[in-house]
Amino acid sequence: MTRAVQVGVIGLGAIGQSLLKVFTAHPDVQVAAVCDVNADLAAQTAGPLGASAWTDDRELLNGADLDLVYVAVPPQHHASIALEVLRAGRHLLCEKPLALTLNEAQTMHRAAQAAGVIHALNLPLHADPGIDTFHRLVRDGSLGAVRRAELNLVFPQWPRPWQHNPWIGGRAQGGPIREVGPHLFHVILTALGPVTRVWANAAYPAEDAAACETAALGLLELEGGVQVVVSCLTNVPRPEQVSLTVYGTAGTAGLVNWAVPVAAVGAGPLEAVPVDTPRTAGGTRLVGALVSRVRGGPGDLVDFGMGVRIQAVLEAWERSTASGTWVDTVPA
């Protein structure tokens, strides 16, 4: 392929607009079409790009010559739109979580495999040098036997100030576990291995039955019995915290501020671990890998198979919250 990769973007909210800027900055990408139910927003976004503007994703797929489609709509619409994209035979990038339910995620994965196209999930922590360093710390034997891990999520406000929209604070599609959880569940799955069962409990605002959780506590049990303690708290007067700590018999390794690796030997203090590879923005890594893959080259992407594994953890979390019991994850 010698022409620019022709990209269509469906969904022009905050996340869609953010990655749209990365696509437009890439020298080998042409954003050829954009789509949103808000016709004015679609037109305003398309104008400076010389792109076509649409309000119906099916009309976009029928009317625009595209190589790759980025689906950046709310989770409840991922499956229906993604399946249309796959039926059209286009390469596909989808926002996380992959779907609203595990069944939808599995259907999307099967359809992507059958279509024979590139399929990827937008997880900006993937291939981050800090995350790669954390993986090395967990795997190089310096921790000894892993005994436990802890994931801590604290948000002074939810939704976060930049994140306000009609669904992100709702129980049906939003909430910090569903929104932030996939990023760290992906790290846990790749660094520590499969999650076999989940126990979870959540607190919701008494005055708003439609609102998402304000607090959650749970356990992810890994193969071999090691447990990951998950604590989530919102709307408290503390700075945002996203951290993951792995405790071993000989040392400790962790991530602070999302992707900064730290480690300790024995009883020593946790200290920052140098990262050798220069850090680039997650969106830049993702778009570069997508362009390479579309053109038949290499590219490190999170495919829909991993999306299904993450979705299985999310669904088990939600089922456990509802039942108050341990829930097995369904094998991907």
Rank of each mutant, 00 (worst) to 15 (best):
W162S: 10
V265C: 00
R279I: 10
G170R: 14
L60Y: 00
Q311P: 01
P161V: 13
L219Y: 12
A250Q: 13
G248S: 05
A216M: 14
G297I: 04
P159L: 10
T277N: 01
L189W: 03
L83E: 15
T55F: 05
G11R: 05
V308E: 09
S142C: 06
V242K: 04
G296M: 09
P261F: 05
T321Q: 15
L92A: 09
E221T: 13
R58F: 03
M1W: 01
V34T: 04
H164W: 11
R279T: 12
V262Y: 03
P194F: 12
T234I: 06
V71F: 05
G11T: 05
T234S: 12
V69G: 02
G130C: 02
L255W: 01
L92Q: 05
A332P: 03
V242M: 11
A202D: 06
G251M: 10
D36M: 06
V117S: 06
T249Y: 02
E84Y: 00
A39C: 04
Q173W: 07
L270S: 08
A200C: 13
P156I: 10
P27D: 13
M108I: 05
L121P: 01
D208I: 10
L301V: 11
S323C: 09
W317R: 12
L189Q: 08
D303N: 13
V187K: 00
M108T: 01
D140E: 12
N122T: 01
L60W: 00
P166D: 14
A322R: 14
V308W: 08
P129W: 07
I118F: 02
G224A: 09
D57I: 00
L41M: 12
A127F: 00
S243T: 11
G16N: 14
P97T: 06
G307K: 11
P48R: 14
G130H: 01
L20V: 03
I131N: 00
R3L: 07
T107L: 13
A53H: 03
L153F: 15
D303C: 07
R87K: 14
Q30I: 00
L189K: 02
L12F: 06
S18V: 03
G254A: 12
Q113G: 13
P176L: 14
T190F: 03
T325E: 15
A79D: 04
T234C: 15
L255P: 00
T190R: 14
I131Q: 04
L137V: 07
W258I: 04
H186R: 06
Q163H: 15
I168Q: 06
A316Q: 05
I118D: 04
P48L: 15
M1K: 02
R285K: 10
D208N: 15
V246W: 05
T196C: 09
R309L: 13
P298R: 09
S320G: 06
V226C: 07
